[in-house]
Amino acid sequence: MEILLAKYNYWIYVALMMIGIYGMIAKTNLMKKIIGMSIFQTAIIVFYVSIGAKKGATIPIIEHGHGAAHAAVRVADYVNPLPHVLMLTAIVVGVGTLGVALAIAMSIYKEYGSLEEDEILERLE
């Protein structure tokens, strides 16, 4: 129980990731696969964002810090902004992937008239 609560952010990301992988692998509907893929990517974004957080810390802008402006900057007072910035890029990449996947799914629907994997495989023959 202790470990569940202390590291709850990791448990959330692991649970999200598993839901995503389940969607990608077990579902036969292409739309559901895409949704699974998005959840999977979001799980990683949650993971990164949560590792930058610190207890009792504020946003990383020095003038608004707890101490006086002239005092030395205490790192523990500010959340780590780097993972958040990295995730801006990862969100963009995620949107790009989603766009490409949806575009391909649209073409598949135009070509085969279905988004169910088994029906498409039948029509491939």
Partner: peptide, 19 residues
Amino acid sequence: KRALMASFNYVVIGTMGAC
């Protein structure tokens, strides 16, 4: 044609790899 389905599978698996 068949490239579409192949490409879709590649999107799903490739994204998993990159993630």
